[in-house]
């Protein structure tokens, strides 16, 4: 662009009066470009998030079944029914068990592996890749793989247990073991995630702090207990939030491996929504469960944010 053209462009911009709202000036070019850039996304979010949230709450006050042209209103009946619905409470309890089981094992093992990988050892990169691989795989496909691993007679797990003279349980078809099986698979799958986040957290710990502790004669356990672990608390908290939220949303494994059975021992909230809305065609009741589900997730987040103020040490 030649000098004169450039000047002309700047001049023409300056010539247009700016829009003034409450003492702040806005350039017209900013206004219409922002509108142009944001509108497509706002339309999508408007329909599929905000309208959907409102519509979901509306549906929860109806007994709609996807078929009738009108929405038969039932007021708060669905919520009252939910409160007395034993299967809903079972689903809530199971979801909590699944979340706590998965998170505790996945966090402890993830932290252990991260600490070990943080040492100067051979093949670090390869080992890290191996631990992380299950996390990126397709849940539906690996769920199928684990159905085969948990096969009571010919599966890998019971074959391995047989080596130690243990007769393995019937896993997915035994109501006392099905949830354990789901947790084992999910720990295997999410371990790499907690490990990678912990590794990132470890790398942000200042080396000289650990060196100083070593000079002062602190052993490995002491420097972990008094330096590393407290400094990792924001990381721990972050992992807790993300894994808790995602464990509460578990669906694929349950749908593929157990369908909530046997005898409701693995029914989880998300699967219960699916079952009511899309298997039993109770759109209204399904919407009621998902509204409550949303409130539960929101309160988990709020509680976690509150708690974090108490025990997370930021540097």
């Amino acid at each position: 662009m030649s000098e004169s053209l450039r000047l002309q462009a700047v001049k023409s911009r300056a010539a247009r009066p700016a829009l003034q709202i409450g003492g702040t000036k806005y350039a017209w070019s900013h206004l219409w470009v922002a509108a142009l850039f944001l509108t497509p996304s706002l339309i999508i979010f408007g329909i599929f998030i905000y309208y959907a949230l409102g519509f979901n709450i509306f549906l929860s006050t109806t007994s709609w079944n996807f078929l009738t042209p009108d929405f038969p209103s039932v007021g708060f009946d669905n919520y009252i029914r939910l409160f007395n619905d034993a299967r809903f409470w079972r689903a809530l309890g199971n979801t909590a068990v699944f979340a706590i089981g998965t998170i505790s094992f996945s966090m402890v093992l993830g932290l252990l592996f991260a600490l070990m990988l943080n040492e100067k050892i051979p093949a670090r990169g390869v080992l890290r890749t191996i631990f992380f691989t299950p996390y990126v795989t397709t849940t539906a496909a690996v769920a199928l793989l684990w159905v085969w691993i948990f096969d009571p007679r010919y599966g890998l797990l019971n074959a391995a247990l047989a080596l130690f003279g243990i007769t393995g349980p019937r896993w997915l078809t035994d109501q006392n073991w099905a949830m354990t099986a789901l947790i084992i698979m999910n720990v295997w799958k999410t371990l790499g995630y907690t490990m990678v986040i912990y590794l990132a957290g470890l790398q942000s710990i200042p080396r000289d702090l650990l060196e100083a502790a070593k000079i002062d004669g602190a052993g490995r356990w002491a420097s972990f207990r008094y330096i590393t672990f407290p400094l990792l608390s924001p990381t721990t908290f972050f992992i807790l939030v993300t894994t808790l939220l995602s464990a509460f949303q578990v669906f694929d494994q349950v749908a593929i491996m157990t369908q909530g059975g046997p005898v409701g021992s693995t029914i989880v909230l998300n699967y219960y929504i699916y079952e009511q809305a899309f298997v039993n065609m109770r759109a209204g009741y399904g919407a009621t469960i998902s509204t409550i589900f949303f409130l539960i997730l929101l309160s988990i987040t709020v509680i976690q944010v509150r708690l974090s103020r108490r025990w997370v040490h930021y540097q």
Binding site: F55, N56, L59, F251, G286, F293, F294, T301
Partner: peptide
């Protein structure tokens, strides 16, 4: 939007698309 899990919008979005 990040706070809204997919599951909460799945029934209404199914209806919208239908």
């Amino acid at each position: 939007v990040l706070m809204v899990p997919n599951e909460v919008t799945i029934v209404p979005n199914y209806v919208t698309l239908s």
